[in-house]
Nucleic acid binder design. Structure first.
Lengths: 127, 127
DNA sequence: GTTCCGGTTAGACGTTCATCTAAACAGCGG
DNA sequence: CCGCTGTTTAGATGAACGTCTAACCGGAAC
């Protein structure tokens, strides 16, 4: 348990006019309701398969990928991939649309950004 | 966020395993090994109790909180809180130290920052 | 229409997880 | 030394999760 220089977490004016969206964890204590709303989102990305799915979709050209591309990247059955995609969809992290034979998925950037902001030790400051 | 000389939130080094540390999800596809290393970290925060614990610790004056303060904030038994703190500790998200009777916990800011950076839609100004 | 292919849904099975109670451990004060 | 308080560990239990196989749906091609 090594001690280190204290973080010096600053309140940085949580002026982000977003309301209940983005005050970082370190700014003010999360209330229970917020925590219970946020936890499922983190749970959705707290799986190696889903993390890779998100990444594959995000990196795919055009910002979207079809399920067949995704399935090929794993040693898992189709239904399993479909299940993970559903979890991501229900969490609002991705959206999808059927176009002809194939179903295309793309990232919902706002949701990822929200999670990122929550974890940011502080908003500005950057070195 | 009109950056042209982008801030480039840095890796924090601290890569305990592969060189896989910091490219945001949307920059290049996460490899399996990276995903499997990252997922447990997200899993650690993917619980409302642990999210609130993190926040309570981060916001507490001096940047650290003792277990008794934390336990009071929940309708859960001591052992349950202790269990959640252990999960956070094993994930490297918090550190602790016993000082006399009480055990003090504080955030490991680097780990949170790392997770935040991974979720950041992208670092540079694509688009 | 019928057949084939891509993708999802349904249900089952074993594992992991959150929580509890009981017991142990660590300091402090008499 | 002994009891008291704060914290962690151990073990049990029920719920949630990840994966599979089998079955189903939607669209395209024959």
């Amino acid at each position: 348990m090594s001690k280190q220089a204290l973080p010096v977490i600053q309140p940085i004016s949580s002026d982000t006019s977003g309301g209940a969206c983005c005050a970082p964890l370190a700014c003010e204590p999360l209330r229970q309701a917020e925590a219970e709303e946020l936890a499922p989102l983190f749970k959705a990305i707290a799986d190696p398969v889903r993390l890779r799915l998100l990444s594959l979709i995000a990196c795919h050209e055009g910002g979207e990928a079809c399920v067949c591309d995704l399935t090929d990247a794993f040693d898992l059955t189709g239904p399993t991939i479909s299940h993970h995609l559903k979890v991501l969809r229900q969490a609002g992290l991705v959206d999808c649309e059927r176009r002809g034979t194939w179903v295309h998925y793309w990232i919902n950037p706002a949701s990822l950004e929200r999670l990122s902001a929550i974890l940011a030790p502080r908003m500005a400051a950057t070195a």
